[in-house]
Nucleic acid binder design. Structure first.
Lengths: 126, 126
DNA sequence: GCATTATTGCAACACAGTCGCATTAATTAT
DNA sequence: ATAATTAATGCGACTGTGTTGCAATAATGC
């Protein structure tokens, strides 16, 4: 787990993710924190949490990195064959249950698959 | 096709993609152009080519947008269920032939799937 | 050739994310 | 409990990708 101290900021970040129940960008995360936390600190916390297998990250629209709590990851390596969904209307991002069938390639060795499905979420289709 | 003029820069960009035979970021593209072309111009050309269905774009590592020539796209809409592969060692990005099986979701309507496979390419495995 | 207007280059900007460094605070040893 | 250690933080400056307004340039149609 590396060296860690149980700081207030760390708890705030984890609480935010638990309450959100979805993926958050650094920006969205900061907006959800009850007290202001420095931008650098937030990025550093996210990096650490990712290293420790607590959250995973992936890219969504507009070149923005999203983070979400991991369910099946260990520190030794992230396992993220599950897909992510982003709504083109409200931009919300969620982790999906579905695993993605990673094609077998003879020219390359695939270690990881990042899958982002885009479309409309239930709320925005009404 | 919108309104277009056959400019030297446009030809240079298209030639670069044809010669590259792989996906390029704006940065990589500029490095491959025989004469210097302004950064804004390059981005504007890429936007236009994407609108016209000539190239498609997707995000790779480090939040960098890559572009590649389209083979089956029309102006009316891009079709990109094929996957992309990026090598973790040399960072090269290529389009794969394989189509991706997009899972069926009852909570969302999926319009598009962005799939980035990451690992090691043949050249880097030696 | 001339007029029209798309394209270009420039400079300034916006934004996500990073880094060095001095300060603060969580943990450990005494 | 107090002091020492060092991880975590905040700040400011910075990097890199991508965008935008505007004046100058050049491709096209006549």
């Amino acid at each position: 787990m590396g060296v860690h101290r149980k700081t207030r900021n760390l708890e705030l970040v984890l609480d935010a993710f638990r309450n959100a129940q979805k993926a958050l960008s650094a920006q969205l995360l900061m907006e959800r924190l009850p007290t202001e936390v420095n931008r650098s600190t937030v990025y550093r916390l996210l990096d650490r949490l990712e290293d420790d297998g607590v959250v995973h990250s992936f890219l969504a629209s507009e070149n923005i990195k999203f983070y979400a709590l991991c369910k099946e990851c260990t520190q030794s390596g992230h396992v993220h064959s599950h897909a992510h969904f982003q709504c083109n209307s409200c931009s919300q991002v969620v982790c999906l249950e579905q695993d993605v069938v990673v094609p077998i390639l003879n020219q390359h060795r695939v270690d990881e698959a990042q899958v982002l499905l885009k479309g409309q979420c239930a709320a925005c289709m009404q």
